[in-house]
Design a protein around this nucleic acid. Structure first.
Lengths: 162, 162
DNA sequence: TTACGTGCAAAGGCTTTGCAGTCGG
DNA sequence: CCGACTGCAAAGCCTTTGCACGTAA
């Protein structure tokens, strides 16, 4: 279940390189390193998470460069930007998986992805009904993941007993 | 269509007063003024918008107090907090209307509300499927409102002609 | 009277910007 | 070589916090 999808990552790096070359933008060590970290991330890292990951690998990339590279990655369409209302952004590389939404655990921060075709169609319909041109959307369900759900119930029992 | 819902606003102010009294918290001029501005707002104002509205009415309330009052209003359940990914929060008073979602225009910032029972049920189902305890959710559709949609097409024609 | 609120200014957290030095193509 | 990038530090935003003073009950 925790696949690293190395082949996907390689392909994405190539696509990013191509994107840069097409626009006559330098393909620098920093840009590739930031992209690689993100392409290999199994989750939805924040800028801080990406920086720490880079440090762990022994390389240092200035914060400003990380932000600037993320802008490029988002523009290129290879990376998706998220704002789960935590006060900072998270990023996610686009694998071959289809468009998906998120379930966010309010206790442990775990993010689970889900796909639902019917939901997507319904959103198209709703936009149409309001004569809106539908460009993108965001569906997030907040609550407790299976683990935290049980733990919360346990906490409650403990507090009642004490 | 642009109803100010004055009766609703009055009732909400009363409910807020009751909320404060119940917790033995002082009912101050500032708290009521911030609440009133929000209860009368037809849209989803930001902290800055609320402050400017207060100034327009000739009263001044410190920024810190506005933030602290908004915390109370959200805790009381009379106000809903939103984050449309703009880098700041927006607030909306809970009228008697049922739970709703938002269509956001990426050009002019207009926010249109919509209600869709089927959508709500579908989200419950999805959370269930993943054994998540569903506490709240967020559905936002971004794009162009009817007005901006036309304007964008016009811009495009103009740029092609020039 | 007294606990809590208020306003100001300072601090905080995330992100962007300005600029001198550096490097890819 | 030149234009674009990088890193650092400073600045920008929104929001929170500390503190002396004020006020609701």
């Amino acid at each position: 279940m925790t696949t690293t999808r190395p082949d996907s990552a390689l392909e994405l790096r190539e696509r990013f390189t191509r994107y840069l070359r097409d626009r006559r933008l330098p393909v620098t060590r920093q840009r590739l390193q930031v992209a690689d970290v993100l392409f290999h991330a199994p989750d939805h890292p924040s800028v801080d998470g990406i920086s720490r990951d880079l440090k762990r690998r022994g390389v240092t990339v200035g914060t400003a460069t990380v932000y600037r590279t993320l802008d490029l990655l988002v523009e290129s369409g290879l990376v998706r930007e998220h704002d789960f209302g935590e006060g900072f952004r998270r990023f996610e590389s686009m694998t071959t998986r289809s468009h998906h939404e998120h379930l966010v655990c309010q206790r442990c921060g775990q993010v689970v992805e889900f796909v639902n075709e019917r939901l997507e169609r319904m959103l198209d319909m709703i936009a149409d009904e309001h004569t809106f041109l539908h460009r993108r959307h965001r569906v997030e369900i907040f609550g407790l993941c299976p683990d935290c759900r049980g733990r919360d119930a346990a906490d409650l029992r403990a507090s009642v007993t004490s």
